[in-house]
């Protein structure tokens, strides 16, 4: 593991949370799942014996796409603004994981 240090200093201007807004992440995952399931429902085998003649993959896929649109739209309409300075998370010594590659925040 290298010890290079990328700059972690805060921006001076408040900015929108952008792609990593948690709602966009939810929207992305649900959207990907929605597309895959809907395609599986349209193209794949139906397995009507299991589901009692309902195309469960297709319907679930469509519902997930609706959820995805909701979250992406919400994030778009009301962006969360990241304040210029906030308490950055430190490496939590109690959570064993690789260290953050960042100089001390101060």
């Amino acid at each position: 593991m290298s010890t290079d240090t990328t700059s972690g200093s805060a921006q001076s201007q408040p900015r929108k949370a952008g792609a990593f807004d948690i709602r966009n992440i939810i929207g992305a995952l649900m959207g990907v799942y929605g597309v895959i399931l809907a395609l599986a429902g349209l193209l794949g085998e139906h397995e009507p014996a299991k589901t009692g003649d309902v195309n469960a993959n297709l319907w679930t896929g469509l519902a997930l796409l609706a959820v995805a649109v909701f979250f992406l739209g919400w994030a778009k309409l009301k962006p969360i603004v990241v304040p210029p300075d906030f308490d950055r998370p430190d490496d939590d010594p109690t959570r064993p994981a690789p260290q953050r590659k960042r100089p001390p925040a101060h």
Binding site: A10, Q11, A17, A19, F20, D21, V82, P98
Partner: peptide, 9 residues
Amino acid sequence: RRSVSDSID
């Protein structure tokens, strides 16, 4: 961990 984005932090 790589701090690629302020938003994640």
